[in-house]
Design a protein around this nucleic acid. Structure first.
Lengths: 233, 233
DNA sequence: CTGCTGCATATGTATATACATAATATTAGA
DNA sequence: TCTAATATTATGTATATACATATGCAGCAG
């Protein structure tokens, strides 16, 4: 029985969560409809709606009109990773940030990059390789292709001072993109830049950002050995 | 000028997004308050509120009472990864799923596991190693420690038939947990189980789930070479 | 038995209103 | 001038009401 009044959507959400966790409502179960819950909790339907909708967003409930609300059978583990600007990430860990431009050239991208960025075969693009360091030690290689349409030739010289990673965030807007996590073995190049042994396992993030379909940039971040990315669920 | 009526929170959100993307409202800018926007869009403040709140949830806006709403300076790239049950993941890719139990033993966990799970030093725990296959080829090693408090001795025999990964989802509730992505080199054991070469780079997911602080299980998923996890931003 | 139609129903959303809360800005007091 | 009390303001939320929309299901026609 509930003698406390559920007068906030958060408290309703907590109660619903408690019932799920206590298995009073088991995965797959149909739970009472909003109107009934509102009456039971002594609040408005809108309040219950807010709570249930939020839980549905988080993947704990499945809701369908007319069919009602049920506890998700496979509570999809949704992990939300926050991907900060690299300088920030290093600073947050309490290390001193460093940046070095390794290479900047305007060349024909490899077909792989052309495919991802949906480039014409003949168009040159800006290729930039740089490295971010933490307390002087290599932290991550940033290997990036830029659509020249979005970054003028004059602007490119800025990358002697500031990393594309950081500059782009505040200067070029994007509407959508893809991100991919994977692992690779250090080749000769990576081993050299990251001062690690060849063959070591490296964590890799590939990211392409677009503005209304059109690719702005595609980057591959190759982290030094031992890097890991963590979050709560 | 807006001659179309913004009579749904989605349309308001789109308009706001458009203004951000067009840089009419630049990162750091203070945008008009809800009441003014409501008037401009010809809708109720609640509708504007829903739209802005949603954008704030996605990290595109920063909102503070009294201070107002501004465009996020560092639009934190938030990547949401959906981590399905392995069987489902393999089935979704159109492969035939297979499962094999490699080892099941009740032993003292290594200190590393004890620390993560906050176990006593003397308590034995259930250790399970199994492998998931796609079309007969090794897909991922599941190396798991179970808190015996949450899984009875009788229940353990079920793991001859069904993977802990799958069984736990529907049988043991959890309230929170941590997840970590990293990379490792294949040792002799991993190479054997995944039939790959020693030293190959493998993608690794570590996950610990808890119920009200208390650890239920801690698992390490070691994927076959080439595995990657992707999502949109 | 099959397929279509329409009704009942649960969720989804818009609105006006009212008050709560946080945090800035202002003012009064020492 | 500095500090503390107070007013102002933008967002946050609860409420009742109304209507929109999807869809399961029953009933009907073929």
């Amino acid at each position: 029985m509930t003698d406390t009044p559920f007068n906030s959507w958060q408290s309703v959400q907590e109660e619903v969560l408690a019932r799920i966790h206590s298995r009073q409502w088991k995965p797959g179960d149909l739970i009472p409809n909003e109107a009934d819950l509102a009456q039971e909790f002594g609040c408005a339907r809108a309040t219950v709606n807010r709570a249930l909708q939020n839980l549905a967003d988080e993947g704990l409930l499945d809701r369908r009109r007319k069919a009602g609300t049920r506890v998700a059978t496979h509570p999809v583990r949704k992990a939300t990773m926050y991907i900060p600007v690299i300088r920030q990430e290093i600073a947050d860990k309490g290390h001193e940030y460093g940046y070095e431009l390794i290479c900047s050239e305007r060349v024909l991208p490899p077909t792989e990059v052309c495919n991802i960025m949906e480039f014409g075969r003949r168009a040159r693009a800006q290729h930039i390789v740089c490295i971010h360091t933490a307390d002087g030690r290599p932290y991550v290689i940033e290997d990036r292709w830029l659509n020249p349409k979005w970054v003028s030739v004059e602007e490119i010289s800025i990358f002697n001072e500031i990393s594309p990673n950081e500059w782009l965030v505040t200067h070029v807007p994007f509407t959508e993109g893809e991100i991919m996590f994977s692992a690779m073995s250090a080749g000769k190049t990576e081993a050299g830049l990251l001062s690690c042994k060849e063959g070591e396992a490296l964590f890799v993030i590939n990211r392409t950002t677009r503005n209304k379909q059109e690719a702005i940039t595609s980057v591959r971040l190759i982290f030094a050995p031992g890097y890991r990315i963590e979050t709560g669920i």
